[in-house]
Amino acid sequence: MKVMKVAIIDYNMGNLHSVGRAVKHVAPGGTQVEITADPDFIRHADRIVFPGQGAARDCMRELETRGLSEIVREVAKTKPFLGICMGMQVLMEFSEENAGVECMGVYAGKVNYFKHLNIAHLKTPQMGWNQIQQKTAHPLWTGIKDAARFYFVHSYYVEPTDQSLVSGETFYGLNYASAIAKDNVFAIQAHPEKSAEDGLRLLANFMQWQP
């Protein structure tokens, strides 16, 4: 029987071990879950988790330094792919962070700074629990109620050009895309590994997903 392999991409950005523990917790027995920067393992894995925390400039630099940019673009087209937090943002073309950063351009769109909304008393970063309104049906929402609460920590939000990508929205000064989905890719701004039962359910759904 073939062993399922899950690659959690290690580019020195993000709460990798927390993500790894959560994925291992929900993975079917015998699944090989590896936190890895090995392009060969990533290319041959059955599922890809692309986490991340920190600044967009640092994220892109680490991906380039480790020779991972192209392999991430490749597997984002070919494998069940879950982006988390910064792993969602850098799929866009451009981020306002660090005076402007060119990102991976998997999808047309940009990443905006909450402070540029100029809303008094809107704290930046958004830190804590907030609701995700499900905008499209998706297998990763299975068993998760609409408007379920997930844990967020971020100062920037995604604005995709194609609004049909938006699978979940969250209100924080405005309604912004907190989850996007297309074909084999699902990406979420919140941290499912920190989001209690609903977060673990989303990860478990990802482990079963057959796009």
Score class of each variant (00 low, 15 high):
Glu64Arg: 13
Ser69Phe: 00
Gln133Gly: 09
Gly199Ala: 04
Val158Ala: 14
Ile119Met: 09
Leu68Ser: 03
Asn12Val: 12
Ile35Ser: 09
Arg57Gln: 13
Met60Tyr: 00
Ser18Phe: 14
Arg66Trp: 02
Leu202Gly: 07
Asn130Arg: 06
Met104Leu: 15
Gly109Ile: 02
Phe152Glu: 08
Pro160Ala: 10
Trp141Gly: 09
His191Ile: 04
Ile48Phe: 13
Val19Ser: 07
Tyr157Phe: 15
Ser178Ile: 06
Asp183Gln: 12
Leu82Met: 00
Ala190Lys: 01
Glu96Trp: 11
Asn15Leu: 10
Ile188Arg: 03
Leu122Trp: 08
Gly105Ala: 00
Arg73Gly: 02
Asp10Thr: 14
Ile132Pro: 03
Gln53Phe: 09
Trp209Val: 10
Val3Asn: 11
Met207Ile: 04
Phe186Glu: 08
Asn98Tyr: 09
Val106Phe: 09
Val111His: 03
Met1Leu: 14
Val75Asn: 04
Glu102Ser: 15
His25Lys: 15
Tyr172Leu: 05
Pro80His: 02
Gly67His: 04
Ser195Asn: 01
Tyr156Gly: 06
Pro51Phe: 06
Pro28Val: 12
Ser167Met: 02
Gln32Val: 12
Tyr151Pro: 01
Phe150Ile: 02
Leu91Arg: 03
Ser195Leu: 00
Tyr176Phe: 15
Lys115Gln: 11
Lys77Ile: 01
Lys110Gln: 07
Lys77Thr: 06
Met1Asn: 13
Ala196Gly: 02
Ala45His: 05
Asp146Ile: 06
Gly109His: 03
Glu102Thr: 15
His44Arg: 12
Gly109Phe: 02
Asn184Met: 06
Leu165Thr: 10
Ser69Asp: 00
Arg21Trp: 12
Pro39Gly: 12
Gln210Gly: 09
Gln210Val: 13
His121Phe: 12
Ile119Ala: 07
Gly100Ile: 02
Tyr172Ser: 01
Ile84Lys: 04
Leu202Glu: 05
Gly52Met: 05
Asn112Gly: 02
Leu117Val: 01
His191Asp: 01
Gly30Gln: 08
Leu122Thr: 08
Leu122Gly: 08
Lys182Asn: 13
Ile84Asn: 00
Gly128His: 05
Ile9His: 11
Gln131Asn: 13
Gln126His: 15
Phe81Trp: 01
Ala137Asn: 14
Val6Gly: 07
Ala27Gly: 13
Val6Glu: 05
Gly14Asp: 09
His116Phe: 09
Gln133Lys: 15
Ala204Ile: 07
Asp40Lys: 12
Val106Glu: 04
His154Ser: 06
Pro139Arg: 03
Ala181Val: 05
Phe152Asp: 08
Met88Phe: 00
His116Glu: 14
Gly67Tyr: 02
Glu169Thr: 15
Ala179Gly: 09
Ala196Tyr: 09
Asp162Asn: 15
Cys59Pro: 07
Gln208Arg: 14
His44Met: 08
Ala181Glu: 06
Lys145Ala: 15
Gly109Ala: 01
Pro192Leu: 06
Asp162Lys: 11
Ser18Glu: 13
Asn98Met: 10
Asp162Thr: 10
Leu63Phe: 08
Val90Tyr: 00
Asp146Pro: 07
Ile132Gly: 01
